[in-house]
Amino acid sequence: MATITAHGKPAGVSGPRPEPPARRQSRRRRQLQNNLTGYAFLIGAVVCFAVFSWYPMVRGIIMSFQRTRRGETTWVGWDNYERIINDPSFWTAWKNTFYFTALALILGYAVPFFVAILLNEFRHAKGYLRILVYLPVMLPPASALFLFKYYAYDPSDAGLFNAILNFFHLPTSDWMQSTTMTMPAMVIASTWMNMGAAVLIYLAALQNIPGELYEAAEIDGAGIWRRIWNVTIPQTKLILSLMAMLQIVATMQLFIEPLILANGAGTQDSATSVAYLIYQHGFFQNDLNGAAALGVIMLIVLAGFSFVYVRLTSRQD
């Protein structure tokens, strides 16, 4: 057994001899030269992030503690936060945003997963079906939402959805003009617009599941739901949790749907989201500092979600 010396090295084993400074320097230079291309590629991304992401973010945080009046900027401590929390629509906006996020998790998260499972089962026309599902993603979001606004959600019987409901002798809806239907209607439109990308990601994950797992489950007498529950979901857990996180972050930033479908706040504030409230303060109410404060609050809330996600996935790792 080797004896350990006070320096932590086994006795009789000599450590690497220190390099002469000139050799060390030339090694560093070589390393630097080797990595130069890498740094060159990196610099574009770093500059882009610094200018368009990090700088606005830091500036936003600073602005949230300032007030600019008559061209003079002063530090005002927590005043902007106090004002924004007292905004009449503050709590409504958060309530609406969380409601949308929850609904989107139920509908917008589950539907693409099951569509992906379904597509994965098809033996024929897979490519066509994938294109079909992905098509709405290629439409500009504003165009897709205008389609919903003018054709699907028309509150008269001429609207597409009301015509379908009428055909089945079901009660029609005022859709965006109804305080109760505003959010579900926005989730339906948002899911239709965005699910193509999610379906493709899920499909990629599903195709990585070894076929023998399903075969073994079938031999054990597992039906379709049992196979999904015991094979598909555990095997795609990582991608499912990642998609859940991305979905929460994306849906919390709800903006274009209320702006286009509900012309902003919707009936009785039923569509006001936090991001829309930021827009109202910043661009309509001459209150960029209040908007910045609300942006920081949103950052903190989303950071909370992100933290939970990181904790969960680190345990899975």
Partner: peptide, 25 residues
């Protein structure tokens, strides 16, 4: 690494809201 992940994910998450208000140089 966990700290770094938290910071990175949080930074990305809150970016959009802040950027709305902050692009006013």
């Amino acid at each position: 690494p966990l700290y770094r992940k938290v910071v990175a994910v949080a930074a990305a998450a809150g970016l959009a809201g802040l950027s709305l208000a902050a692009c006013s140089t």
